[in-house]
Design a protein around this nucleic acid. Structure first.
Lengths: 346, 346
DNA sequence: TAGATGATTGACAGCGTTGTCATTTTAACT
DNA sequence: AGTTAAAATGACAACGCTGTCAATCATCTA
C-alpha cells in the first residue's frame, strides 16, 4: 500500500540514494537515469515521507510564516500565497501569529524555529521591519525573506527582501486625484511605526510637488490602520464645515478609507460628488463600501507566493533555480466610484 | 547541544522507552518514575523531536484544519483557537483551505491527509455539513471533529461534533427586538446551503411565535453571507417606501448586517431611530459600522479551541482526558447602538 | 511463603529518508 | 590504448523516536 523510496528504486533499477537525488533535484544525475526514476515515481505515485526527510535531513521540509497583523484579509492572502508555493515544493507551512508587544514572543519564536527545524521564514510587516528580529534571526542562522514597503535600491542587503512600492502606488493615486482637479487632498495616515505609512506619505508629497500643488501639513491626520481611525481622521480633516476645503481624502489603507467614507456619509457629504476617497491594497474592504473604493491593487497572495519562491531558492538554492521571481511589486491604480472630479468647495 | 530522549533517559536513570511513556502520558508509569523523568526533562529542557515521533509512531503529531470560507475573520479565529491548543499538546497544525466546488478538491484533500498522516481533522462549516465528506473521512478512517450549527440532541452521532446554537442566538436576538416593540422584523438570510441559515431562521420564527407575532414570508430575503447581499436584501425589504412597515432587520451575519446598515443609510433611514439592525457572530464587522451593531457574540477562537480539545481526546483518548470540553456554544446577545425602540411607521 | 497475577520497565528493531564516503562509470586527455 | 580526473552511482550508517514483546518487580492469594 505505502510506496517507499525503495519501491521506486527497485522498479527503476537503481539504488535508493539515486532516487533520493532525483526527487531532491540534486545535480550529477544523468538525464537518462533521471527520466527512468521519474517514470518509476509517477508509475507508483510515490510521495516522499515528510517525516523521514525531516528526520534524516539537516533541515526540515517546512517553512514558517510569521505575522503580527490585525488585518485578517491580509493574513489569509499571505497564507494562501505561501501555501500554494509550499505545496508545489512539497514543503509544509507552519503559521506563526505573534504579537511583537508580547514579552515572551522572542522566546516562543525561537522555540518554534528550533522545534520544527524550519528551513526558512517569511516575515511580514511590521515584524519584517524590526531590526531586533532580523538580528536575532541572523544570529540563529536561519534563512528568511522579508516583505517590505519600499524599494530595493534604498535597502541594504536587499537580496532577501520582497518589496511593495508603496511610494509609487501613493504617487499614482495622488496623481489620479490631481488629474481630476483636486488640490486640497487630505491624508489619513496609518500607524506611524509602519514603513508603509511613511512610504505612502512620501509618494503623496512627491506627486504634489511634481504637479506644483502645495503641501499642507494640516491636511495630514496621523492615525492608524483601522476603520475607526478612518472615521476619526475624516471627521478631523473635515471639521468646522471643512474649513480647509478638502475635496479628496487618501485613506492609509482600504479599511481607513472605508471609515472615512462612512464618516463622510454621517456628515451628509456626497461621495464622490463632494468628496473623493481612496484606499490602498484593494482588499475586500474596498468592495464593501458604497460607492466602491478607488484604490491601489496589491495582490498579496501573489506577493507572498514570490516571497516563498525567493525563500526556496535560498534554502535549496543550488538545486533548483527560479528565475521568474518578482522582487518588487508596484500596486496598480483601480478606479472605482469613490473618486470623481473635484468639487468646487471654494 | 541537542537534547535527545537518550540524554533524558540517562539523567533519569531509566530506559528511553520509559521516558517515551512519560512524555506521551501513557498509563502504567509509576508516579515516582514519572516525577524523576519529568525533572530530567525540565532540567535538560528536552523537546521531543516531532519528525522522529512522526516517523516512528503510527500517526503523526499534526492535525488539520479544513475550511472553505470567505470570511477571513472567521478563518483566522478558527486557526488561532486550534493553534493554541496544538501548541499545548505539542502538535503541529496543517491548514487546508479548499473549495468544495473545486473538482479535485476531494483528491487533494485525501492526499494531504495521507501525506501528513494527520492525527485528526477539524472541519468547519459548510464543509462539516457535507455528508459526502463525512463519508469519505469515515472510509479513510481518520479522526475528525465537526463544527456544526445546531444542537446535539438533533444530530445523530454527535460525539465528535461541537455545536453552535444558532437557533437560540437567533431566538434571543429576535426577542430583544420584540421587547423593543418591533413587530415587523425583516430577515436577510445567509446562504441557504448553510445549516446556520436555517437554524437562524428557525430561531427567529420560534421567537415570533412565542410572542404571538405573525410570521410574514415577505419579510424574508434569501441572500448570502456577504456585504453585498446585505445591501441588496435591505433594499429589497425596504423597497416601495417600506411598504411592509419594517422596523427592524436581522442580518444573516455581521457582514450582511453591515451591508443592510449601509443600504439603510443610502436611503436616508436613521439607525436606530427609524430602523434597528442586528447581526450574528460579533465579528470585527460589527464594530466597523456606525452605529456599531447589536449582535450575538460567538467566540470562534474559543469554539475552535474546544474542537481541538475534543479531537485530542479522540486521538490520544485513552492517554489524557479533558473533562472541560464544552460541546455546545450559545452565542450571547451583545447590545450596541444599532437597535432601539420600534419606530412608529404606520 | 510459594506461586500467581498484573503492573512496570527495558531491549531492540524498525520507521523512510538523507549524508558520508567508497566505488564504478564516463569523459578527456596523452 | 593507457592514464587520469571527474561525474555518476551505490552501500550503509545515522536521524530520534515509538511499537513489540520479553523481563522484572510489586502485590495479592491461598
Amino acid at each position: 500500500m505505502k510506496v517507499t523510496i525503495n519501491d521506486v528504486a527497485k522498479l527503476a533499477g537503481v539504488s535508493m540514494k539515486t532516487v533520493s537525488r532525483v526527487i531532491n533535484k540534486e545535480p550529477s544525475v544523468r538525464k537518462k537515469t533521471y527520466d527512468i526514476v521519474m517514470n518509476a515515481v509517477k508509475e507508483l505515485n510515490y510521495q516522499p515521507n515528510i517525516a523521514a526527510r525531516n528526520l534524516a535531513g539537516t533541515s526540515s521540509f517546512a517553512v514558517g510564516l510569521v505575522y503580527d497583523n490585525p488585518n485578517a484579509y491580509y493574513v489569509i492572502d499571505m497564507q494562501n500565497g505561501v501555501l500554494s508555493r509550499c505545496k508545489e515544493e512539497g514543503y509544509e507551512l507552519v503559521i506563526h501569529p505573534c504579537s511583537y508587544s508580547d514579552d515572551n514572543m522572542q522566546e516562543e519564536f525561537v522555540t518554534m524555529i528550533k522545534r520544527s527545524r524550519l528551513a526558512g521564514l517569511v516575515l511580514t510587516p511590521p515584524l519584517s521591519e524590526q531590526q531586533a528580529i532580523i538580528d536575532m534571526l541572523d544570529e540563529i542562522g536561519i534563512q528568511y525573506v522579508r516583505l517590505l514597503s519600499g524599494r530595493a535600491q534604498e535597502t541594504e542587503n536587499s537580496s532577501n527582501c520582497i518589496f511593495v512600492d508603496d511610494f509609487a502606488a501613493s504617487h499614482e493615486i495622488t496623481e489620479h486625484l490631481i488629474s481630476l482637479g483636486h488640490k486640497k487632498i487630505g491624508f489619513v495616515l496609518g500607524d506611524k511605526e509602519h514603513k508603509s505609512t511613511s512610504e505612502r506619505l512620501a509618494g503623496y508629497r512627491q506627486a504634489l510637488q511634481d504637479h506644483n500643488v502645495a503641501y499642507n501639513e494640516q491636511l495630514i491626520y496621523e492615525g492608524s490602520y483601522s476603520f475607526e481611525s478612518g472615521v476619526l481622521g475624516a471627521q478631523s480633516l473635515l471639521k468646522d464645515n471643512n474649513q480647509n476645503n478638502i475635496t479628496a481624502i487618501l485613506g492609509g489603507n482600504d479599511e481607513v478609507a472605508a471609515g472615512a467614507l462612512f464618516a463622510a456619509r454621517l456628515m451628509n457629504i456626497d461621495i464622490p460628488a463632494q468628496l473623493s476617497i481612496t484606499g490602498f491594497e484593494d482588499s475586500p474592504f474596498s468592495r464593501q463600501t458604497w460607492p466602491k473604493l478607488t484604490t491601489a491593487h496589491q495582490a498579496n497572495n501573489v506577493i507572498s507566493e514570490h516571497a516563498a519562491r525567493l525563500l526556496f531558492t535560498k534554502t535549496r538554492g543550488s538545486r533548483s533555480q527560479d528565475r521568474d521571481i518578482i522582487t518588487t511589486f508596484t500596486p496598480s491604480l483601480v478606479i472605482r466610484q469613490s473618486t470623481g472630479a473635484a468639487a468646487d468647495n471654494s
